[in-house]
Design a protein around this nucleic acid. Sequence first.
DNA 1: AAAGTATGCTTAAACGTTTAAGTTTGCAAG
DNA 2: CTTGCAAACTTAAACGTTTAAGCATACTTT
Lengths: 340, 340
Amino acid sequence: MKKVSLKDIATAAGVSTALVSYVLTNKEKEARIGEEMAKKIREIARQLNYQPNHIARSLKSGKSFTIGLIMADISNAFFASIARVIEDEAKRNNYTVIFGSSDENVDKSQDLINVLLNRQVDGLIITPTEGSEKQIAWLQEQKVPFVLIDRYFPTFPTNHIAVNNFESAYEAVAHLVHAGRKRIGMIAYETTLHHISERKRGYLEAMKDHRMEGAEKRLKTARYAHLKTDIRAAIDQLCTGPERADAIFFATNSLAIEGLKYINELRIRIPDILAVIAFDEGEAFDLFYSPVTYIQQPIEQMGKEAVRVLLEQIKDQKKIIENIYIDTTLVIRQSCGTKH
Amino acid sequence: MKKVSLKDIATAAGVSTALVSYVLTNKEKEARIGEEMAKKIREIARQLNYQPNHIARSLKSGKSFTIGLIMADISNAFFASIARVIEDEAKRNNYTVIFGSSDENVDKSQDLINVLLNRQVDGLIITPTEGSEKQIAWLQEQKVPFVLIDRYFPTFPTNHIAVNNFESAYEAVAHLVHAGRKRIGMIAYETTLHHISERKRGYLEAMKDHRMEGAEKRLKTARYAHLKTDIRAAIDQLCTGPERADAIFFATNSLAIEGLKYINELRIRIPDILAVIAFDEGEAFDLFYSPVTYIQQPIEQMGKEAVRVLLEQIKDQKKIIENIYIDTTLVIRQSCGTKH
DNA sequence: AAAGTATGCTTAAACGTTTAAGTTTGCAAG
DNA sequence: CTTGCAAACTTAAACGTTTAAGCATACTTT
C-alpha cells in the first residue's frame, strides 16, 4: 500500500501539487486559493488519509524537528526520568527525540554526536562525559544548538542546566554535622567532571567551616568502570579502625545503591552506627529499612528548561548563552538519625 | 557554516555529483571509476569533512533507518532498561531510535503511532496498551513492520517478544507453597492485557493444583491511574482479619514497590509475617531489609530479539510472523523465608 | 579498416515537499 | 478599447541524494 503524496491528491483534484501544498499548509490566504477548491482539496486529502512526508519536508526546510539526546545511561533512573520529561516536553512542541547512551565514554559520545548530527537533528541535549570538552567546543564552533544538562565545563561558556551542586553538598554535610556526626566521609566518582568536583568542594568546605578533621582522607573515589570493587574498598577503609566514619555522603544515586548494598552485607546499622545521605533519588531509598535522606533534584524542571533553552537556541542562533541553576531540596528521612 | 554536500566535493574535484556519490558509497567497481579519481574524491571529502545528509538519503531510498519505540513509560526501570538494550542493538545495525511514552493510554498510543509514522520510521517496537488492538490491527493492514514486546494480543497473530508469564507466575506461587505459605494473595493490575491475565492465571492454577483455598478472593487488582490508593486498599483487605494472607505475589515491579512501601508503613515483617515475590527486577529489591525474591526477565535478550525480529521484518515484509517466548528465572532471596 | 568493447565519466530523473515567479482570465478603470 | 490589476492557478526550481542510461574516447579484435 503506497503512501499518498501531494501528487496523488493533485491528480485526484485535477490541479497542481503546488496548490495542494498551499492549502494543506494553510497558506490559502497568501496564495489566494479559491474557497471551493480549498475545500475540495481538503476533502480529498481526508479521504485518501494523506499524511505529510516529514522527511521531504525536512529536506526542503533544512529542519528536522528532531532533538538528539545523549545521556550517560538511559537505564539509570535519574537519566531515564529526565529523558521522559524531555520527550514529553519536546512532543508538546512538535519535536521528536532520538537518544543514545554514552556510558561515560568519550569515544561513544563522539560517535553518538556524529550519528545524531548526520541524522540532521536540530539540536542536542547532552550530559557530557569526562574529557569531552573538545567535542563540545567543536559543536559550538559549528554553531550546532545544544544544551548541557547535569554537568558542564566551567572553563568555557555553554548553555547548561545544572543544579547548585556546591551548596547542595554543603547543606547535606551541614545536616550531618547538626545531626551530631563527627567523622563524616564522602564517596564520589573519580572524575574531573565539574558537578562532582563541586559536590566534593561542598563537602570539604562544609567540613572546614564546621571544624571537622580528616575530611581529605575520608573523601574516597570510585571509578565508573569498577564501581562495585572500588566502593567496597572505600567503605572498607572508611568503616574500619578506631577512627571509623559515622556518616557517609554519597555523591550519586548509583554510588549510594552500591554502597548501601555492601553496608547491608557488613551489617552496619543505619543510622545507629552510620548515617547516610545520597545525591539524587531512587525508589530504593524509600524502601530501605531506614529510609535514606537525599538531595532531590528537580528533574521535571531541569528537563523542561533544557528543552526550552534548546528550542530558543534553535530558533535564534545568536541568542545569548543561558546558564540555568536550579535549587535542590534536602529530603530528610531517617538515615541520619534525625526526625526533621 | 554551511554543510558540505556532494555538490561541493564535485565542484572542488571538477566532476559531477554522480561520480562523487558512486565513490563515497563504494560503488566504484560497478560504476567503473578511475582509481586516481576515486582517491582524489575521497581525499577532498576528507578535507572538507563531508558528512552525508541522512535525510536526503532517506527521501531517495524511502528508508529512514529509524525505529520507533513506544513504551508504557520510559522512566520505569524495566522499560528504561529495555530501551537501553534496544538502542544499543539498533545502533549496532546502523539504526537510530525515536521514542515516546504512552502512559498506558490508548489515545496517547495512537498519537505516538501517528507521529512516528509521519517521521517515516521503518518499523515500530511497541508495548501495547489496553484497548489498542485496533491500532495494532491497523498497523498490520498497512503493512507497517512492528514487534510487540512485553505484551501482545492472543486474539490475533502478531510478531511479539514475551516471557512465559503463566509458567513464571505458576512457579512463583509454587515456590511460596513449598515455603510453607498457606494463604497466598496476589496483587495485579486491573487490566485485560494478556500478560497480566496470564500471570493471574498462573497464580490461580498454581493455587488450585496445590489445593489452596480462597485464591479468587485473594486476587486483588489496582488501577494504573490510582496505583497508590488501590494498592493500599488491596493490602488492607489482604492483611487484616483472622484469615490474613501470609504471602503476596506482585504482578509487576511498580506494584511491588508501592506495596512494599505500605507494608513497611504497616510494620508488617517480611518474611516472618508475610512472604513476598515480585515480577521484574528493581534495585530496591536488593536493598530491602529482606531482599525480595523476584522473577527475573531476560531484558537483554528480549530487547535484542525485538530488534532482530523487527529488522528482519523490515528487510522482508512477507516474512512469517515470529512469536518469541523467553523463559524467566526465579531469583530466590530472603523475602519468602527460604534460603534456596 | 571496420566493428566491437572496455573504460571513465556525465546527464537527467527521481524521492515529496515548498515557494518564488510566472501565466491566464475576467473585470473595472481610464 | 486599451491598460491595470486582482484572482486563481501553474511552472519550475530547489533541498541532497541515488542510479539508470547515455556519451565519448581509447583499445582490442577480426
